[in-house]
């Protein structure tokens, strides 16, 4: 908790937290905020530009873009958060095993190297396409693509911590390996891990949008930031608002999370830079 006052004094962190809070609150209260049903089409209201009744215009089914964005934020944020959690979980398991048990180090990290050799977005596209389009499969695909780097970060921190004197002291008083790992090593790895998870949250929102654009994202009609933008592509000259506004929503969410990550990094993981 010592970190909290320093975080609250960090300008980037506070700005990022505010942006993220706005997006999260909007997503949570979509039921009350959304002026229309995000799935209801209205043929006579097709492709209306931004106006008083439809602030951000309508799409080719006459669906209200603002309402779709509010509900889309839910799925996009859920995908980002779940991916961050899963990369944290599996990254910690693999990274801790590799860093703490020398015999596992080489095989595990070579496997991670191999996964990292594929362009992450292409790996995610391939896994998502092979598994089939659904929210859960997108989360799995993005976790597969982001976990190797997380594991590498955790391993690096574990390697530093396990050589410290207090670890030797813990062993000297007869503590078991598993207990040393859980009680003493992992808590000291938390800083870099939280920072990484924040950046993965941001990356996952960007990647979900890219997967939807390619056509392997969460299936329509349920809105996500990505598939609203992807829908708008065919109408880019006549109805640019379909593409413009959800894209800006992605920028605001991701910028907020990146600022949050920068703030957390400065406070929790001062050795890492940029």
């Amino acid at each position: 908790m010592r970190a909290l006052p320093r975080l609250l004094g960090h300008r980037a962190f506070v700005t990022g937290a505010a942006l993220v809070l706005v997006v999260v609150l909007a997503a949570i209260s979509a039921d009350w905020l959304a002026p229309y049903d995000p799935l209801r089409s209205a043929v006579r209201m097709r492709l209306r530009p931004p106006e008083a009744e439809h602030w951000f215009g309508t799409d080719h089914f006459g669906r209200d873009i603002l309402s779709r964005m509010l509900f889309g934020a839910r799925i996009s944020l859920a995908i980002g958060l779940s991916t961050a959690m899963l990369t944290g979980l599996f990254g910690t398991m693999i990274g801790a095993a590799a860093g703490f048990f020398p015999r596992l180090d080489h095989p595990l990290m070579r496997l991670m190297d191999a996964l990292m050799a594929f362009p992450a977005i292409l790996l995610a596209i391939a896994v998502a396409a092979v598994l089939g389009a659904s929210v859960a499969n997108v989360i799995v695909a993005l976790s597969v693509a982001t976990t190797p780097h997380t594991a590498r970060i955790v391993r690096a921190s574990v390697l530093v911590v396990r050589r410290m004197d207090f670890i030797e002291a813990a062993r000297a008083i007869g503590m078991g390996e598993a207990r040393v790992l859980m009680r003493h090593v992992l808590p000291n790895v938390a800083g870099p891990l939280i920072v990484r998870m924040t950046y993965v949250f941001a990356t996952a929102i960007l990647a979900e949008a890219a997967l939807s654009f390619i056509g392997v994202g969460p299936p329509p009609p349920a809105p996500t930031f990505g598939n609203i933008i992807a829908n708008g592509r065919d109408f880019i000259s006549d109805a640019p608002w379909i593409t413009l506004f959800p894209g800006l929503a992605v920028v605001v969410s991701v910028l907020g999370l990146n600022l949050l990550g920068d703030g957390l990094r400065d406070v929790l993981d001062p050795r890492a830079r940029a």
Binding site: L206, A209, A210, F213, I229, I236, L244, G247, L255
Partner: peptide
């Protein structure tokens, strides 16, 4: 720089098409 890192690449591409091509 931070703003650039937060923009989806394909969306930026679409916006550039909208501005410079359309």
């Amino acid at each position: 720089a931070l703003l650039g890192l937060s923009v989806p690449d394909f969306w930026l591409g679409l916006m550039l098409i909208l501005l410079f091509a359309v």
